[in-house]
Write a protein that binds this DNA or RNA. Sequence first.
RNA 1: GGCCCUAUCGUCUAACGGCUAGGACACGAGACUUUCAUUCUCGUAAUCGGGGUUCGAUUCCCCGUGGGGCUACCA
Length: 492
Amino acid sequence: MQENSENKPKVRVRFPPSPTGFLHVGHARTALYNYLFAHINNGDLVLRIEDTDVARYSSEGEKDIFESLKWLGLSWNEGPDIGGPNAPYKQSERTSKYSEKIKQLLQDGKAYRCFCSQERLDKMREIAEMEKKSFKYDKTCRVLTLEESDMRAEKENFVVRLKVDLGETIVFDDLVRGNVKFSSDMVDDFVISKGDNQALYHLAVVIDDAEMGITHIIRGEDGLSNTPKHISLQKALGYVTPRYAHLPLILDEKKKKLSKRSGDVVLTLKSLREDQGYLPETLLNAVALLGWNPKTEQVVFTLEELKAAFKLENVQKAGAVFSLDRLNWLNKQHIKRLSAEDLMERSKPFINKSGIEIDRGFLLKIIRVEKERITLLKEIPQLVLDITNEPVLDTEKIPWKNDGKDRAKDALAVLIEEIGILPMEVWSDLLVLQTKIMEIVDKTEMGRATTLWPMRYALSGKENSAGPHELAWLLGKPETIKRMREAVVQLG
RNA sequence: GGCCCUAUCGUCUAACGGCUAGGACACGAGACUUUCAUUCUCGUAAUCGGGGUUCGAUUCCCCGUGGGGCUACCA
């Protein structure tokens, strides 16, 4: 499988985010699919930072790219942080390469300088819009001679446009969509550089992908319409066209390209992990299933399982709506699979952020008890407070259903009496404690609900909570007795 | 507007051209349980429309329609 012969070059894919904001769910999927594709083909994944737009650059965004990818557990073989044979991996550090190519294109007559003013173009665009026609550059500057162009370039502002041949059909075989055809007439003489040393996105991408030996470009469907531009550029530069795979878009509930929030939940990876407390396992799992299916009925996947099951052929063509319901359900599933110790470690940032001081052992006990009730890690600090804070009781809620207050009081009194004489050792083990409490409850012959509901409510002060024996176990004997006594007092 | 992509339950999706169109989330009901959660059982719910091709179409073709993307001196 480690085949590297000339006729079968090593698979190389890339993930090229732009540091203009935080990575979101869509990025996670593109990164994951590239990672998986590289992995199953024994290929390489290149991380490249597309920071050609200085105006929109954000250093926080750049930092987030590394943090979020690492959090997800997706690693890369070459990148700005680890280097590699095709360094540098930041476009801002590759400008000399672009300038070289721009010069070459100009000299070869495959591109030309355009001195048309922004105002003039804006006006033409406006008119085209009014006439309901698609705007196309009128090619005024295409006919300039190189001498004329060189002269004007010394004192005038300009951009560089690609000379695109008309009347050609650009065809490529998309790995997801099959044959896709475009007419070169639609491509237009698009701008590839501001001045002669400020490459724009399309140019930079095409040069980098070629120079970095990228064989497969796996990206969102929004790149589909750009592909003919890239192919035109590849032709002009004498590059081989890589294979393309355009993934269906991830959509919001309104079926638009996913925006950065869904309701009041921000869908950046940073917010999902730091504010909400989703696990990386959850994100990977959720995003894997948006636009791909394993052809089996398995729904919960680990990264390792995805590596075994993923196939680009099973990628969907139609857009997929992102669902928070499903994300939440998956988070529960993955939380359930964690050990209590692991879950505790992962809850640490949330505990720290809340300012709660808590003993490790105690936190672990709480998590052991609450584990299957947790959907998001952010719920954990409140869970801790619910245990440690003195409950505020509503006496109306102490009795079970139609029981009167007197009956609840009697039940609690018996429990206090009987639990009070249990030896301390019983508290060392939850199961033992539970058995003992149930023995006591059944001995009263008052009915489980009549006794256990007031006990649980007295201990938690909540209509919903963990069970009474679990709470008793967490609180310890003295506090358990104290809280039950308090309930009796309040019942009057 | 032009170009391109796309179409199965509300959502994610399965179904060599051939069973009562399957699963998951969500929702509803029930069981278990002291509450909630968990777990289990059951249920509601879909092939966008019209033409072809075919013995037979969710599946292949065409035309509509819906949805989406692109249409920057952003990436």
